[in-house]
Design a protein around this nucleic acid. Sequence first.
DNA 1: GTATTATCGATAAGTGAATATCGATACAGC
DNA 2: GCTGTATCGATATTCACTTATCGATAATAC
Lengths: 226, 226
Amino acid sequence: MKEITREGVSYMTIRRLPQYMPLLRAALDAGDHCVSSTKISDFFGLDPVLVRKDLASIGITGQARLGFPVRELIGGIERFLGWDNLSEAFVIGAGNLGRALAGYGGFGQHGLKIVALFDTDPEKVGKVIAGKRVTDMTKFASLVERLRVPIAILTVPPEAAQDAADAAIAAGIKAIWNFTPTKLTLPDAIIVEQVDLAASLAVLSSRLVSATRTPRQYEEQPVNDM
Amino acid sequence: MKEITREGVSYMTIRRLPQYMPLLRAALDAGDHCVSSTKISDFFGLDPVLVRKDLASIGITGQARLGFPVRELIGGIERFLGWDNLSEAFVIGAGNLGRALAGYGGFGQHGLKIVALFDTDPEKVGKVIAGKRVTDMTKFASLVERLRVPIAILTVPPEAAQDAADAAIAAGIKAIWNFTPTKLTLPDAIIVEQVDLAASLAVLSSRLVSATRTPRQYEEQPVNDM
DNA sequence: GTATTATCGATAAGTGAATATCGATACAGC
DNA sequence: GCTGTATCGATATTCACTTATCGATAATAC
């Protein structure tokens, strides 16, 4: 996994940071001033050194014997991930998945605000999901321009994905969160993050195959004599 | 990324294999007998050697100048991932996300068959989504036992996730595909695959932060998450 | 005050995956 | 048949991430 990332923060670190957050918030609620890397690493089954490295890489420094100041930690991670000021997003595709995402209340904590949904189906246009209106796709471009929305969340059927993505970037969208299985080919300047359910399912089912086809799974088998 | 994997096939390889499939199926439809690693790698922006290594690791061998026999390739990957015989799954949580997954027709191609949905909400029980009945959660255990369903797809609210997962494995579920942001603590023998939207979003927004705070631009990233 | 211990930060070592290199192979064109 | 070229497979190298080690620090116990 070779990733060019920002200011020397590795891809894997970026993926771990948000996972630390619930634990940190819980600690804050519990009134703790400091959290140790050991405490975090125990919870997630990681090495404490790894946690310290993650935190160090975004410029947070702890104190020996005490740990890391929770408040500063939360603030630092939020700032690094851009969760401190909300980015607005449009959902393209108001099917079940689009509606599920629009209805999920947790994204606000993650710096994402879904503003509206778009669809071509006149049946769906005009409905309101969790306070967000489903708008006709023909209005997409003008609204992106007017509201300067940087993110499109793509939840259209696979065969419509490339066209929708093209339309989105033509309208000025900077980043696409792609929930379709379609591999998009887009200009390099566009940020694309793929939610790859097929890959995730592959890991699951491949493990299941191992578990069922061989009674003993996992690494080592005593190779020698029986 | 250190992962326990089967027979020396790396985690990253397992995640790439399913992505190759659409291209292979397209090649098959086009009547090609062979596909070269170059063709695959070009499409996905990978190194051809990497593709060959992936294929070699699941025991598929090609021929110089020709490439890899498409039919054998597809068969091999499907067999490896367990897509050749469907695994059945129950969806726990018939909210928008659960319904979206139940309504998605593509999982059949990936060896997954969603049999039914479960929910505790009497409002939802009895409804039918894409031919699958929403059943009361109280019937879950007996149905898992009777139908020997190995997989649970978890789409309940975050705060209900741990309880639902506990109930699932008590009923005999072997693998959990967890779409909730809750980190589940379960026996080691249970296979858990986490769809980590928070991590995916973190990568997206962290890139967006870089792009907006510094005008410069970055490389691409073919690595997919979740 | 001194000893103990948990924890940090830095550096070094280890691990595993991606990439580069190269000889071998088999088809295509002449 | 000979040559050229695309492709494979194997080995070696590079690179990134994780783990191990160790001295320093600061709270706590005595």
